[in-house]
Simulated scan of single mutants.
Amino acid sequence: MKRLLDIVLSLILLAVFSPVMLVVAAIIAVKMGRPVIFTQQRPGLHGKPFDVIKFRTMLNAVDSKGQLLSDEERLTPTGKWVRKYSLDELPQLLNVLNGSMSLVGPRPLLMEYLPLYSNEQLVRHHVRPGVTGWAQINGRNAIEWEEKFSMDVWYVKHQSLWLDSKIMLITVKKVFKKEGVTQRHHATAERFTGSKDAG
């Protein structure tokens, strides 16, 4: 039932937001250049890799050694605006449509984080990653990793269509209030360096 709802709702949302996505793509193309889409391999259901699709918000600027500059240095004013209203996440509706993501679930993070999780935290990969989730409506990037993962695991153990509906409704409110978009002193959130309980 959840997969069926994901398909139906993602089709509806793509139809509704397609004009917005075209405008955002045009703004990024003018202000930041091409490409306007950013893809990156992320762990999906059971940790299986997939390519997450987002609007680009950063430049590919490098230092004198050819290394990428920090997120804070590469994030553009246009990128900040796009992230402020979570518009960069809209292309992930295509991920939902192709089955690599769900509308609701733990957010897909970096592949390099997989070996850093504790056994309990790995439970977050027992479901498809989501465009929004329990942690996103309870602090998003403003909360610490351990707390965020605890919320992800709680969601996996308590998931239901009622809970998903509640999360989606609260997400709309959070987007308009622009809460938890960034962590203090970081473009989004500090990097995860390992669980206290790992190993």
Rank of each mutant, 00 (worst) to 15 (best):
T57K: 07
D63A: 09
P49V: 09
H125G: 01
Y85C: 09
R74E: 08
I7G: 03
E146D: 15
K80F: 10
S18K: 13
N138A: 12
F50V: 05
M21E: 04
P108W: 02
P106T: 12
K196C: 03
A142N: 06
V127C: 12
M101T: 09
K65P: 10
M58E: 09
D63K: 12
Y113A: 11
P43I: 02
R124D: 04
I12G: 08
K54E: 05
H46V: 13
H46M: 08
I137E: 00
M111L: 11
R128Y: 00
K178A: 15
K80Q: 14
G139W: 02
H186M: 11
A198R: 12
R107Y: 04
E120S: 02
S165N: 14
K65G: 08
A26K: 05
K157N: 15
S18I: 10
D63W: 15
D152C: 11
Q121K: 01
E120I: 00
L114V: 14
L94I: 14
R56I: 06
S86L: 03
G47H: 04
T171G: 05
K80E: 15
P106K: 07
E146T: 10
L75Y: 08
G130Q: 01
K54A: 07
F192V: 09
Q183E: 14
L97W: 04
V24L: 14
